[in-house]
Simulated assay, not measured.
Amino acid sequence: MSTTSLPSDYFLHRYQFTETNHRDVYPVLQDVVSDSQVGKTVLITGASQGIGKGIALAFAKAGASGLVLAARNVQKLEETKAEILKINSKAKVLVVSVDTTLPEAVSALERTVKDAFGHVDILVNNAGIGGRGLVKDIDVNKWWSDMEVNVKGTFLVTQAYLRLLPADKRGFIGNVGSYAAEMVVPSASSYIVSKLAVHRFTELVSSEHPNVQVVAFHPGSVMSSIVADMSDFAHFAQDKVGLPGIFAVYVCSERAAYLDGRYASCNWDVLELEAKKDEIISKDLLKERLTGVYSTV
Rank of each mutant, 00 (worst) to 15 (best):
T4W: 02
S5C: 08
L12V: 13
H13S: 05
H13T: 03
R14I: 02
Y15K: 02
T20E: 12
D24S: 15
V28C: 12
V32N: 04
V33Y: 10
S36H: 13
I44L: 00
I44V: 12
T45W: 03
G46L: 01
A47T: 06
I51M: 13
K53W: 04
I55Y: 04
A56H: 09
K61C: 07
G66T: 00
N73H: 11
V74R: 15
V74P: 08
K76L: 13
I84Q: 08
S89C: 03
V93M: 07
S97R: 00
V98W: 02
D99K: 10
L102C: 09
V106H: 05
K114D: 07
A116M: 00
I122H: 07
I122C: 11
N125G: 04
A127K: 05
G128P: 09
G130I: 06
V135T: 11
V135W: 04
K136V: 08
D137G: 05
N141V: 00
N141G: 13
W144L: 10
S145V: 05
D146Q: 14
E148R: 12
V149R: 06
V151I: 12
V151G: 05
T158A: 10
Q159M: 03
A160P: 11
L162G: 10
A167E: 14
R170A: 06
R170P: 07
G171P: 11
F172Y: 15
I173G: 05
N175E: 02
N175L: 03
S178G: 11
S178K: 09
A180R: 04
E182W: 07
M183Q: 15
M183L: 11
V184M: 07
V185Y: 07
P186S: 07
P186M: 01
S187H: 09
S187N: 13
S187Q: 08
S189F: 01
S190T: 12
Y191A: 02
V193H: 09
S194L: 07
V205I: 12
V212N: 06
V212E: 04
Q213H: 10
V215D: 07
G220Y: 01
S221A: 10
S221H: 04
M230D: 11
S231N: 12
S231A: 09
D232F: 03
F236Q: 07
A237D: 04
K240G: 00
P244A: 02
V249C: 14
Y250P: 11
V251F: 08
S253N: 11
E254I: 00
R255D: 15
K277M: 14
S282K: 15
S282A: 15
S282Y: 04
L285I: 05
K287W: 06
T291F: 14
G292H: 06
V293A: 10
